[in-house]
């Protein structure tokens, strides 16, 4: 099977690929967002602790 016919999905490409793309976006966001927020929070906490030490 050629790449072209694979991507064509028997004519249903406009339904199949957006489904997969949306799933990828939602799943990645639900992991990345808490990780980024945690890093930011850790930075804030460590800044506060340094201030308190002085």
């Amino acid at each position: 099977m050629s790449l072209e016919s694979f991507l064509y999905m028997g004519g249903y490409a406009v339904y199949v690929w957006p489904s997969y793309a949306l799933t990828a976006v939602v799943l990645i966001a639900n992991v990345i967002l808490p990780v980024l927020q945690r890093k930011q929070l850790l930075r804030q906490i460590s800044l506060r602790q340094k201030r308190e030490k002085r």
Binding site: G11, Y12, V16, Y20
Partner: peptide
């Protein structure tokens, strides 16, 4: 359903 059924693997 042709290839449209492949949505099943995430749906």
């Amino acid at each position: 359903q042709g290839d449209s059924y492949r949505i099943i693997y995430i749906h």
